Simulated scan of single mutants.
Amino acid sequence: MRDGSEEEYVDYVTARIPALRRLAYLLAGDEHRADDLVQQTITTLYVKWRRACTATHLDRYVRTMLVRAYLDERRLAWARVRLVRETPERTAPGQDAGVEDRQVLRAALAQVPRRQQAVLVLRFFYDLPVDEVAATLGCTSGTVKSQTSRGLATLRRLLGERELAGATYEGSRSR
């Protein structure tokens, strides 16, 4: 890139890194893997910049690249390599109950199949419509709806449906 497009690329990436890291972290659940995903995405973007910068919705294009990199990551051999025998323990949650809730939700979300996890993050954390999620994942709207339903069912099972149902039921009784 010798024309002015390299400067455009640097400006775009510099502005979008925080949003890309946030999405990657929500998907991967780990800061280091999130950084790797972002690095992979912006490297691929650099290679494809001339074509990418002509996209109607550049942010959507780059978000699609990141989500697809995340979904493809498990197929790569290096994703299965562990450098330590045991996973290090996480630090204890703080006094804030919200932090603990987020950790519980993140742990449950990590157990959901990757495609369902991507659908749930895009639908509920990013509040994207079904059609946009379908375009991002390269599937039909019906697939997104079924993956959402299955993913939510798995989360309910993992988080303990009785606890969730009990909280809803008790909350409705007190009104």
Results as ranks from 00 to 15, higher is better:
residue 110 A to P: 03
residue 47 V to K: 07
residue 175 R to Q: 10
residue 7 E to G: 08
residue 50 R to V: 04
residue 147 Q to M: 08
residue 6 E to R: 14
residue 80 R to A: 15
residue 143 T to H: 12
residue 14 T to S: 11
residue 135 A to K: 00
residue 22 R to S: 11
residue 36 D to C: 00
residue 29 G to W: 10
residue 23 L to C: 06
residue 172 S to K: 09
residue 139 C to K: 00
residue 109 L to Y: 03
residue 169 Y to Q: 03
residue 136 T to D: 01
residue 62 V to G: 01
residue 88 P to R: 11
residue 144 V to A: 00
residue 150 R to S: 07
residue 79 A to T: 13
residue 33 R to P: 02
residue 87 T to P: 01
residue 156 R to G: 10
residue 58 L to H: 03
residue 37 L to V: 06
residue 20 L to I: 02
residue 130 V to P: 03
residue 132 E to T: 11
residue 106 R to E: 10
residue 2 R to H: 10
residue 41 T to D: 05
residue 165 A to T: 14
residue 90 R to N: 05
residue 175 R to C: 08
residue 61 Y to N: 02
residue 126 Y to P: 00
residue 129 P to N: 13
residue 11 D to N: 13
residue 55 A to G: 06
residue 47 V to Y: 01
residue 113 P to K: 11
residue 11 D to S: 13
residue 72 D to A: 15
residue 77 A to P: 11
residue 45 L to D: 02
residue 7 E to A: 15
residue 96 D to W: 03
residue 107 A to S: 15
residue 64 T to C: 12
residue 14 T to Q: 12
residue 102 R to C: 08
residue 111 Q to S: 09
residue 122 L to Y: 01
residue 172 S to T: 09
residue 36 D to W: 05
residue 6 E to P: 04
residue 91 T to C: 07
residue 135 A to T: 08
residue 4 G to I: 12
residue 175 R to V: 10
residue 84 V to H: 09
residue 75 R to P: 00
residue 52 A to I: 11
residue 127 D to M: 09
residue 49 W to Y: 09
residue 128 L to V: 00
residue 46 Y to S: 03
residue 166 G to H: 13
residue 21 R to C: 05
residue 85 R to F: 08
residue 24 A to N: 08
residue 12 Y to V: 13
residue 138 G to H: 04
residue 18 P to M: 07
residue 122 L to H: 02
residue 169 Y to L: 14
residue 133 V to R: 02
residue 118 A to H: 05
residue 84 V to A: 07
residue 146 S to L: 13
residue 7 E to V: 14
residue 43 T to W: 01
residue 73 E to T: 12
residue 85 R to S: 11
residue 170 E to A: 14
residue 68 R to V: 06
